[in-house]
């Protein structure tokens, strides 16, 4: 068993075990902490698969952003009955039904994948050229597929670099920046103290 496989099993075990811990924990803060560990392990899996960009995004957005926010939110507002959660029987059944159906979709899909991605069409986009000159061996599935960083290619594809041949998403990106501008201005305008209310009162007194 190679180091790569060992790392994979370690991270996968960690992700699964802490995911279960999230389900069985009763305290919201602990749940959040277990979720951080589980998602961190998932990010490790992404790194292991050569998807460094997705792994970094997972760390930055879920672990770094969303969950820290969640923990802070709970800690700042934790007075009510929401700190510890008792799950009722009906919710268990419902959650098991939903989770089980997702599992029933995911497991057969995962089993149906080619064990060794040597075929062109089964390869992950971007790794196709790499898998050609690789000797087909049994360890291919657990070996890292590519050593090239994916972030550069994703970035170039996003802005539509002349080499990539697509129009890219620079324009939508700019459009989003305008969205954010409107949201910021609207929120600031709505949330500011109403200091203009005074002249209006005077006016209505005169009238």
């Amino acid at each position: 068993m190679s180091w790569h496989a060992l790392e994979f099993y370690f991270l996968a075990l960690m992700a699964c075990a802490f995911a279960l811990a999230v389900v069985f924990a009763a305290n919201v803060v602990r749940m959040a902490f277990y979720l951080i560990l589980s998602l961190g392990a998932t990010a490790g899996l992404f790194f292991l698969a050569g998807a460094d960009f997705v792994g970094a995004m997972q760390l930055m957005m879920y672990v770094g952003g969303t969950l820290v926010l969640l923990v802070f939110g709970v800690m700042l507002t934790a007075q009510g009955p929401w700190v510890s959660i008792r799950t009722s029987g009906g919710e268990w059944v419902l959650a098991a039904l939903v989770g089980g159906s997702l599992l029933a979709v995911l497991v057969p899909t995962a089993m149906r994948l080619d064990p060794a991605p040597n075929h062109e069409h089964a390869a992950v986009p971007g790794t196709a050229h790499k898998s050609e000159n690789k000797a087909p061996d049994a360890k291919a599935s657990t070996e890292p597929q590519t050593t090239r960083p994916t972030a550069t290619r994703i970035g170039l594809g996003l802005i539509g670099a002349p080499t990539s041949g697509t129009s890219g998403y620079l324009l939508p990106f700019e459009a989003i920046s305008i969205h954010l501008l409107v949201v910021l201005i609207g929120a600031a305008y709505l949330a500011r103290p109403k200091r203009r209310a005074r002249p209006k009162l005077v006016e209505s007194d005169e009238a």
Partner: peptide, 20 residues
């Protein structure tokens, strides 16, 4: 993508306008 963003560029200022 651009169609959706354009729709949102209509919707988001609409929220601000309605709120103001």
């Amino acid at each position: 993508v651009l169609l959706f963003l354009a729709l949102e560029l209509i919707s988001i200022p609409t929220y601000v306008l309605l709120a103001l």
